[in-house]
């Protein structure tokens, strides 16, 4: 005859143990944090602001030049400037310079399209050794992929909400 165990009682006990473990983990995490140096938030923010600002200012100057002196339409000029930024970021990644700049500038170069270009080229270089199809081909989107999926999904959700609100208002 197998021994009967009180299943509900066991579950209660398990829950209690899990809660206790979580509490200990949280307390230890707080304790470990005391020993961890805080990042220099202000300095990092300033670096990101000025580098990111410089990139955007230069891009806008280039766009103004293209629309003004070259007589391109606003849309065409924007496309050219975007392509230019992507190409520069890709080249800098390939020469192994981009990660050095990103370490300094942080979000300043990661948030503009330069960050996207880097996130595509870095895996391409890394996984080239595993072949062009199953290496670079399969892993090309490992960094950018999740961002694209979440970005597009959230834009769809926002779009649906917007559509409902507009219908209500209309």
């Amino acid at each position: 005859m197998p021994t009967r165990i009180n299943i509900d009682g066991g579950k209660e006990q398990e829950k209690n143990n899990a809660r206790k473990k979580k509490e200990i983990a949280k307390a230890y995490g707080r304790y470990a944090k005391q020993f961890t140096p805080r990042p220099r938030y202000l300095a990092n923010c300033l670096k990101a602001f000025f580098t990111g600002g410089a990139i955007c200012t230069l891009a806008l100057a280039a766009q103004n030049y293209l629309t003004g002196s070259r007589g391109l339409s606003q849309q065409d000029a924007g496309t050219y400037v975007t392509i230019g930024l992507i190409v520069i970021a890709q080249l800098l990644t390939a020469f192994g310079v981009f990660d050095v700049i990103a370490k300094f500038a942080g979000a300043g170069v990661i948030v503009p399209i330069t960050g996207f270009a880097n996130s595509m080229v870095a895996p391409a270089i890394e996984y080239k050794k595993e072949g062009p199809v199953l290496g670079a081909g399969a892993k090309l989107f490992t960094v950018a992929g999740p961002v694209l999926v979440c970005g597009i999904t959230s834009s769809m959700v926002v779009g649906i909400i917007y559509w409902f609100i507009e219908r209500q208002a209309g």
Partner: peptide
Amino acid sequence: ERQFRMPVEHGNQRPTS
């Protein structure tokens, strides 16, 4: 780095820890 974290040439800032 490439197994546990990111491709080597990926630009990011490492946490202080």
